[in-house]
Design a protein around this nucleic acid. Structure first.
Length: 507
DNA sequence: CTAGGGTTAG
């Protein structure tokens, strides 16, 4: 318990954590659980400038051995530092005993694939003694996220030959699902049509494809696939219908008023159809509709629907409550929203970061830095409370950039880094755009370079904004530094700044 | 992101 408290304290200042401060910490705690100890060591390795130097002293200090578990934990923390992760991996490999496990390989392959170093990832896969299907699945996901769908299908075809594992409907479904989730529905449908006889089809696969069509706004194609599955004697279930319902509701435009009413009518039609098939709408169905009410800023209708579902004996979940809370917050009715948070807590449901983000968004809209800080402090201090999410941090960054509160901004940024969940593309984009607005070009440029180093590709608008600012302010030296960085990483924005380009991946 | 709901819209 004492350790947990100290651990919590430490987390607030991990950037300053050095071997010596750890030494004093550990002297206070002669008996530390081994697993937590390893976690601490891995933090030091990551935060220390030289993980290899740090490793030796940390291992000695904590008198624990270099295990594959520790290696995995450290690699997981090095998600944004593929070069360090790779050299740590080679260091581990060079040790007299070999701590490299399948999971270490998987983590490193994922880190490399995330920054599109697919050749290096593929090289590691070939080195693995026991290749599993899971390694290929994560590679497939990264390839698709990089837009390399053809290579992803090829990796899928490699599974059987290279692992000896049989590929079944589940893996087929995963491939289609990933393609759909990243918006490559046409590719998914093509693969589906070509291979469905080989791998078989089920309600899950059809649901995935319907999800894909709805995601890209092709609701009518979703309906066509629904008819197709029914024609083949596969019964849709509540998930299938919820996917369709979400397709109706998700991106529907709600203004003017008539559009909103049209959307609600279509949604009710889906409800009717599922009831006709003997499928009862569940909590998800209601949450989807509540979300539409929320987007349309209809607090009264939200309350009614919430009441209606409770009467049907369906218990609201975090998502349900969050939709209604979002509605209230966006209408400026913060007090009622807080009351609803109270109700959900009384019903034993803990608010999630998304729940609190509704409040933060409203604070940002009002430029209420004090209100936001109050809730932020509550989230960080109250252990029972949800921890801030990446989105929380990004909202706060936007708010404090806008308010020009430099110190608070720095604090939030550091908190985010120390939490280990950020920054992401959005964080960098928010920072750079905000700094450009304040004409703080030099700082904006620093973030631009840093994000590239971490493997994030700046958007075209970000680049243009910075480019224009630097040229107009006559900051040619800074501009040259930025240009050099882009060249080093083989990123070009083309003559018309239309698209950036990365070295193509071939296999 | 290993079938669905919360953050991304007037």
């Amino acid at each position: 318990m004492a350790y947990r408290n100290l651990h919590g304290c430490k987390l607030k200042f991990p950037l300053s954590s050095t071997i010596s401060s750890l030494r004093s910490l550990s002297s206070l705690l002669p008996q530390i659980e081994a697993s937590r100890d390893a976690d601490l060591v891995s933090q030091v390795l990551v935060h220390h400038h030289n993980p290899f130097h740090a490793m030796e002293s940390s291992l000695q200090l904590h008198s624990i051995s270099f295990s594959s578990h520790l290696l995995d934990q450290t690699l997981l923390r090095l998600t944004h530092h593929s070069k360090i992760a790779l050299s740590l991996f080679h260091y581990a490999k060079s040790l007299p005993f070999n701590p490299l496990s399948t999971s270490s390989y998987n983590i490193l392959i994922d880190i490399l694939a995330k920054v599109r170093q697919f050749d290096a990832a593929w090289h590691l896969i070939l080195q693995m003694d026991h290749k599993g299907t899971d390694t290929f699945l994560l590679l497939i996901r990264r390839l698709i996220s990089a837009g390399l769908t053809r290579q992803a299908v090829r990796a899928f075809d490699d599974i059987e030959g290279l692992t000896g594992n049989k590929v079944r409907t589940d893996e087929f479904c995963y491939l289609l699902d990933t393609l759909c989730k990243y918006g490559y529905v046409k590719v998914a449908a093509e693969v589906f049509n070509k291979r469905k006889a080989e791998f078989g089809v089920d309600v899950k696969i059809y649901t995935v494809l319907i999800y894909g069509w709805c995601k890209i706004g092709r609701f009518e194609m979703g309906e066509r696939f629904l008819k197709d599955m029914i024609g083949r004697g596969i019964e849709p279930n509540v998930v299938t219908y919820n996917v369709l319902l979400n397709g109706v509701c998700r991106r529907a435009s709600l203004h003017p008023e008539g559009r909103f009413e049209q959307t609600i009518r279509t949604a009710e039609k889906v409800f009717d159809e599922m009831r006709q098939r003997g499928i009862d709408p569940d909590v998800t169905s209601f949450s989807i509709v509540l979300h539409v009410y929320s987007r349309a800023h209809k607090p009264e209708l939200s309350f009614d629907k919430l009441k209606q579902m409770k009467e049907l004996g369906i218990s609201p979940t975090v998502a349900t409550y969050t939709s209604v809370i979002k509605c209230l917050c966006s209408c400026g009715r913060l007090e009622e929203a807080e009351n609803l948070v109270g109700e959900m807590v009384r019903n034993g449901i803990s608010p999630s970061p998304a729940t609190y983000n509704c409040f933060f968004k409203e604070y940002r809209g009002r430029k209420d830095g004090a209100g936001a800080l109050r809730l932020y402090k509550k989230m960080r201090e109250d252990c029972l409370c949800a921890a801030p999410s990446l989105h929380t941090y990004n909202i706060l960054l936007g708010l404090f950039l806008n308010l020009d509160k430099k110190e608070t901004l720095k604090e939030v940024w550091n908190d985010m880094k120390e939490s280990g969940i950020g920054p992401d593309l959005d964080s960098y984009t928010t920072m750079i755009h905000g700094l450009c607005e304040k004409q703080r070009w030099r700082e904006a440029c620093q973030f631009f370079v840093e994000m590239i180093e971490r493997g994030f590709l700046p958007q075209k608008v970000t680049f243009e904004m910075l480019y224009r600012g630097l040229i107009q302010s006559d900051m040619l030296r800074t501009w040259r530094r930025l240009k050099k960085k882009l060249e080093e990483e083989s990123i070009t924005y083309g003559s018309e700044f239309k698209n950036y380009h990365i070295k193509p991946y071939r296999r």
